[in-house]
């Protein structure tokens, strides 16, 4: 194949016409259907066929003979149960489902703003609310097992028996329990 035979499109759009050798090479490689040749060469090939119909027809007929021969070999039929088996797996993957879940039709600041507001509310409640944890033997007064101030760390259970919270939580050797209680009073 010479350079002039191959279809070329220069930067200026100048197209060098396809020669018989290139036309023959394409027919030999891709067969007789020009529609199935490389996209960039179909137009020039049709131009060549229009310019040299007899030669083009001869070259295409040679290729078509082999095409017909090859078509004699049909593929084995696909088993009928294969398609349903494949379709049984046809479900969106985990990542795809997550992507759809996160899809937001409006501007991105809307979900981002909602997230930021929830975060601020959580932080505000966390900082501003009384400490709910029984650190140092203290228990919030609102809790059902609240320790009355006069009980000195002794809560009363439903049976009326006293339960030393600090003792329960930290054992008898919890030295800071009494200190914290005093500090609060």
């Amino acid at each position: 194949m010479t350079e002039g035979d191959r279809t070329m499109t220069g930067n200026g759009g100048d197209r060098v016409g396809m020669g018989a050798a290139r036309f023959a090479a394409l027919a030999e490689a891709y067969g007789a259907s020009i529609a199935r040749w490389p996209a960039a060469e179909r137009g020039p090939a049709r131009d060549f066929r229009a310019a040299a119909p007899a030669e083009a027809a001869r070259l295409l007929a040679e290729a078509a003979t082999l095409d017909r021969m090859l078509d004699e070999w049909a593929a084995p039929d696909m088993p009928a149960n294969l398609a349903p088996r494949l379709a049984g797996h046809a479900r969106p993957g985990t990542a795809a489902r997550l992507r759809r879940l996160l899809q937001w039709p409006g501007p991105i600041w809307q979900p981002a703003g909602a997230f930021a507001a929830a975060l601020m509310l959580g932080l505000g409640l966390g900082v501003g609310a009384p400490d709910m944890a029984p650190l140092g033997g203290l228990v919030s007064a609102e809790t059902p097992t609240a320790t009355p101030p006069e009980s000195n760390g002794i809560a009363m259970d439903e049976t009326g028996e006293g339960v030393d919270i600090a003792l329960f939580l930290y054992g008898p050797a919890a030295p800071d329990a009494g200190v914290s209680q005093e500090g609060m009073q």
């Binding site: 070999w73 593929a75 084995p76 696909m78 294969l82 398609a83 494949l86 379709a87 046809a90 479900r91 969106p92 993957g93 795809a96 489902r97 992507r99 759809r100």
Partner: peptide, 27 residues
């Protein structure tokens, strides 16, 4: 579309490609 989670698109891909792919592998 199938990658975005559309099961129908994936089934359409199967319809168009399963038989040819099986034919290629069988040959």
């Amino acid at each position: 579309a199938a990658a975005a989670g559309e099961a129908a698109a994936y089934r359409a891909l199967l319809d168009r490609l399963a038989r040819p792919l099986h034919g290629y592998a069988a040959r």
